[in-house]
Amino acid sequence: MLKFLGHRRQTTSGKDPALKPRLRRRSAFEYIAWIVCCLLALGILLSVSTNPNFRWGVVARYFTHETIIRGLMLTIFLTVASMVLGTLLGLLLAIMRSSRIKPIAATAGVYITLFRGTPVLVQLIFWFNIAALYPNLTLGIPFTDIGIAIDVNALIAPITAALIGLTLNEAAYMAEIIRGGFSSVGKGQIEAADSLGMSGAMKMRKVIIPQAMPSIIPATGNQVIGMFKETSLVSVLGVAELLQSAQLIYARTYETIPLLIVASLWYLVMTLLLSYPQSKLEQKYSRTSSRIPRKAKGIVLTAPEGIAR
């Protein structure tokens, strides 16, 4: 330590100073941080591996247990289904929100406020109990007797409630992401499309959506990862997804901690698997590289700059 405080000695070896490496300065804090963090990691590792209550044997046994795998599949299904449906509904909401017609924009605005402003857990329980509010659902022509009545209690099975709840909630978030993407498209682009006489739908399809994608896609990837973990909430409805499957087992065997570890490991594995393509997507659509569309990146510029006429 004293070497740092005292004056620096200059020694002349035969080595050419131009070839000497330049070393980074390390503060005392850096050394302390290394030591403390290593000790902490060692302590945790030691405790986790030696504490018999973790019961790693049980974890290993149940990791690929049939019930757990079935739960995992259901979790994946719920994630995919609610993301796909939520994105479609979100797109519709985003288009409605940017509408010039006030009531349409306001409807989308109210929807987004409601669904983003209340906890998704509450929403899930709400949809599960919707039969208490509307016991019968009648499909038919208003103000006539024609139509069929459906018992809502039978219609809203736990899994339907889960799917509806997750989809409707996700749609609100996706709507904001998509709308953000839309507003990242310059005003000049829309004016150019207008000056060519493009219709509203054409503008959306050919000009706005393709250009909004670079900002929408990475954010959607993030939502998928979030949704994967969010599905654990539907365990409260008794849907046998990953967490509920683990709960079903430990309710019987009382091996609570090992089974929670099993579920957590699966969540972790899936999240890590998803975050790799997510980071690739982010790179691909990053601001600087997305100026040129993907398929054009292979083109090598060989032509001279600006051939004068």
Partner: peptide, 29 residues
Amino acid sequence: AEQRTRIGMVFQQFNLFPNMTSRENIMAG
């Protein structure tokens, strides 16, 4: 839109569609 197709407009900031090639930009209209 029909009236606009008869009026060409060139902008200060070009406003070419970045997702289309030069040819596709010209063919878009």
